[in-house]
């Protein structure tokens, strides 16, 4: 049941990404190209997603627990540090170069385009490189949002 539900949720997400334009690097890069061929569409993606999630979470998180698990797993950290901001800045640079973010690229794999496959392989390599770097600096488990 958990697996079936997760698969359906993945489809809803992947369909949303496909309809929204987030799977299209040309559109993503144009959103940031205010000085050039600006396309403000992605404001509407973010707006729609955040409003629905904000409203939905208000109801869902009032429940004592999720339907198919024992507890809600929410990020507990409130620390705004160099790791968070530096990592986010580096992510921004990569997003600006490639035009894909992880949430846009994973569903886009379904189109079978070689560009998406290349980006995703490099993305996974980057995740492993960063983990190796973290363990080298401080041997603790990395945290994920």
């Amino acid at each position: 049941m958990r697996i079936f539900v997760a698969y359906l949720i993945g489809i809803v997400f992947g369909l949303g990404i496909s309809i929204s334009g987030m799977a299209n690097p040309a559109k993503v890069i144009n959103f940031f190209d205010v000085a050039g061929t600006w396309d403000p569409s992605l404001i509407f993606v973010m707006g729609g997603a955040v409003v629905v999630t904000f409203l939905g979470y208000r109801f869902v998180l009032k429940r004592p627990m999720p339907l198919f698990d024992r507890q809600f797993l929410l990020p507990g950290s409130n620390v705004i540090d160099l790791k968070l901001l530096g990592g986010s800045a580096v992510f921004g640079i990569g997003w600006g170069i490639a035009g894909f973010c992880p949430g846009g690229a994973l569903p886009a794999l379904g189109t079978g385009r070689i560009e998406v496959v290349l980006f995703t392989i490099a993305l996974v390599a980057g995740i492993f490189a960063a983990r190796a770097l973290m363990h080298f600096r401080r041997p603790t488990a990395p945290t994920q949002a």
Binding site: V90, G94, W95, I97, F100, C101, P102, A105, L123, G126
Partner: peptide
């Protein structure tokens, strides 16, 4: 290059 940088970030 972009994908690798995104992964690190």
């Amino acid at each position: 290059v972009g994908g690798f940088i995104v992964g690190i970030g």
